[in-house]
């Protein structure tokens, strides 16, 4: 497979997953606001600030907007194409990548993605959003699910498939760390509120942002306990959005691409993913809390980035050809 194609397939899948996660985060937090009464500007800002911080785009946000509120944050994360991680920018980028590799993906995938793109580019999109953000975000999520279904049912299990899976799970692992981190940044009105109604509502919102509400409750019946939630989203070996689950998939995918047996490694990416998987497989939530949840999640994000970079070096990066030098060499051979 061409290196360029592998890169495009990876980013296509990754951008779609990113768009889906952002919409869930926004949708849930818009809902959450409805649970509170009489919020003043400052409280609204305190609600949205952590989300901006968690996405890692805080600096850019404050270059574009003065104040974090429902309107500005949703605009920034949904429609503003100056933000490369807004929903619109993600879907446009996913579609552009799909266009680059049209010959590699099924026409069903391209058409579904193209439909979403045409919808978002139409004047209709903003109207739908104004009439109800939920319908709008649902639509994006449905398309993301459709994408995953189509990848699963129309793509041969070859290298291209693996690079798409790699993109999906890399993004998902990263976003789960960020969603979990949102709560770290959320301040409770008062120290006595810990475990109170607001606190619980925030934790529930967090679970919903990760599509984990039902799955969590199936295991921990009706008990919204921060340590358990962290344990579930980090260490669950069966929930498909937990960090451990995603890293296991990443590790499997990398080994399938190279053909190297799971217990060993043939490149740096495999070594790093194996190492991270080991830590996640044998780690405990007590250890995480001792270290500090935020610090721990920061560390995971950094390690995921290293896996991404070394995979890029192993498969997608091609040393740039010095055109002038190449021309000269070829002319000497004429």
């Amino acid at each position: 497979m061409l290196s360029r194609v592998a890169d495009s397939l990876y980013w296509m899948a990754r951008y779609i997953e990113r768009a889906e996660n952002i919409t869930r985060l926004l949708e849930v937090n818009l809902q959450l606001l409805l649970d509170f009464e009489h919020l003043d500007d400052n409280q609204v800002k305190e609600h949205w600030d952590p989300i901006i911080r968690a996405t890692g785009d805080e600096k850019q946000f404050y270059e574009l907007y003065e104040m974090a509120d429902s309107q500005t944050v949703t605009d920034f994360l949904t429609f503003n194409t100056k933000n490369p991680n807004s929903v619109l920018a993600c879907i446009f980028a996913a579609r552009e990548n799909a266009r680059q590799v049209r010959d590699q993906i099924s026409s069903e995938i391209f058409e579904s993605l193209n439909n979403l793109y045409l919808f978002l580019r139409s004047a209709n999109a903003k109207t739908v959003w104004q009439q109800g953000a939920w319908d709008f975000y649902d639509r994006i999520q449905e398309h993301s699910h459709l994408f995953q279904g189509l990848v699963s049912s129309t793509i041969s299990r070859d290298e291209g498939y693996e690079f798409m899976q790699f993109g999906t799970y890399m993004e998902r692992a990263d976003k789960t760390t960020r969603i979990l981190d949102v709560k770290y940044h959320m301040l409770l009105p008062d120290i006595t509120d810990v475990g109170g109604a607001v606190d619980v509502a925030q934790w529930i919102a967090l679970l919903k942002s990760a599509s984990a509400f039902e799955a969590y409750h199936r295991i921990y019946v009706a008990d919204v306990n921060p340590a358990k939630i962290a344990e579930f989203l980090i260490f669950s070996n069966s929930f498909p959005r937990s960090i451990r689950f995603c890293v296991k998939e990443i590790n499997d995918v990398l080994h399938r691409i190279s053909g190297c047996p799971l217990a060993s490694f043939s490149n740096e990416a495999e070594r790093l993913s194996g190492l991270l998987l080991g830590d996640l497989s044998y780690g405990s939530v007590e250890g995480v809390l001792n270290q500090g949840l935020h610090e721990y999640l920061d560390g995971i994000q950094a390690r995921l980035n290293e896996i991404g970079a070394s995979t890029y070096n192993a498969y997608m990066f091609q040393p740039p050809v010095d055109l002038a030098e190449e021309i000269q060499t070829q002319q000497q051979q004429q």
Binding site: L2, R4, A6, E159, I257, Q318
Partner: peptide, 12 residues
């Protein structure tokens, strides 16, 4: 890319 008068694709 051309090497030794042959044309190659840069693949994974």
């Amino acid at each position: 890319v051309v090497r030794d008068f042959k044309v190659y694709m840069r693949t994974t």
